[in-house]
Write a protein that binds this DNA or RNA. Structure first.
Lengths: 208, 208
DNA sequence: GTCTATAGATAGATAGAC
DNA sequence: GTCTATCTATCTATAGAC
């Protein structure tokens, strides 16, 4: 039994298990088992399994969203004052916080896998929570990219942003993909991924 | 009760339900309910829930894989004879069969959603089946792209192909994403998606 | 706050009649 | 091949002692 309080241990265990096995693939008994807590403690602290997921998401996404919002707003202000900003810079403002979270700890990296799962689970629990937590960030990203690429049709831009989100979430899951014998890249450290993802997405966004 | 045999009705129902609700989110009772069949019929025809998923995947992916293999091999032969082939052409050979399946019927479109789910479910059932069914296609895609982009480092190419797969699978799920108030593109017909995806991916692959 | 014990519902799988 | 009936296991959730 660790020194941190039960509530935090449950959050940590749920985050890892939801990420590795999915929300439906994880039972609350597994969570309490890994957390060294009791089944009833989950309902006492969080109310239900779904509310537990909400808490897991909010713990990471609220600060992450604030960081992204600050960075993107800073860029928007600079652009309004006439300064020229590159597409790469905008993308980095959006992806950077996520990548730094991945680097900061093994838990952070697992969390990004959970986000990837939720993105690919239409209608599932977490999708609505995610939309509410990250939607404003995506709107800001769209505004910033539109300002950098003023000649790009806005609906085409929207599509391309979704292509970017797909590439992002998929590559964040890659380190965990088994079975693709030799078809998964060796180096999966986030610095390398970011260094390869940003140029790819930039060229895609700037396509004619 | 329809005219088609029970086995096919079960396959159809399972395909749609697995796609809309996920594998774990779907019970065999839901499948038999929608198929107008009995619970025991699933075990008689398919053995288990997991084998049912395998059959669902194989029914579409075996012909799809053969089509992709034929198209990509045709391109490789043309390139070996010295002919110049564009990146767009290689991508279309890989994505085209999937897109045509999506257009052919509502069931085909749902199937692509199921594939997107499986791609984002590391360690889940279906991941290994998918790798075995589609892995050879991805190897062919890599060979064809490497031939078209000989100066690109092979591991960088591998990463970029994974970015492409992520963008593909995510955009195939998009029509079903609720909740992203106004953040989801209007037109989701596959022709439009293909027309916007291919240039995006081509520019990304050709990035410096 | 944390525990035991259990309720109540539902899951996949199977046996055996027809 | 298709059905009913049932087994066994597991799930979320809750009531109540401490």
């Amino acid at each position: 039994m660790s020194m941190v309080e039960t509530k935090t241990r449950i959050l940590d265990a749920a985050e890892g298990l939801f990420a590795r096995q999915g929300y439906l693939g994880t039972s609350l008994r597994q969570v309490t088992g890994e957390a060294g807590a009791n089944l009833a403690a989950v309902h006492y602290h969080f109310g239900s399994k779904e509310t537990l997921l909400q808490s897991v998401l909010e713990r990471r996404l609220l600060p992450l969203g604030a960081e992204r919002e600050a960075e993107l707003n800073r860029l928007l202000v600079r652009m309004e004052s006439g300064e020229v900003v590159e597409v790469e810079t905008v993308l980095e403002a959006f992806i950077g916080p996520t990548m730094r979270l991945c680097e900061s700890s093994a838990r952070g990296a697992e969390f990004s896998l959970l986000v990837g799962r939720i993105l690919a689970d239409p209608g599932g629990p977490g999708q609505e929570m995610f939309a509410e937590l990250v939607g404003p960030n995506i709107e800001l990203l769209l505004r910033a990219l539109q300002a950098v690429l003023p000649d790009l049709d806005s609906e085409l831009l929207l599509w391309r942003v979704h292509f970017c989100l797909g590439a992002m979430s998929h590559s964040l899951c890659l380190g965990h993909l088994p079975g693709f014998q030799g078809l998964v890249p060796q180096s999966v450290d986030t610095q390398t991924v970011l260094g390869r993802l940003i140029p790819f997405l930039t060229s895609g966004l700037e396509a004619p």
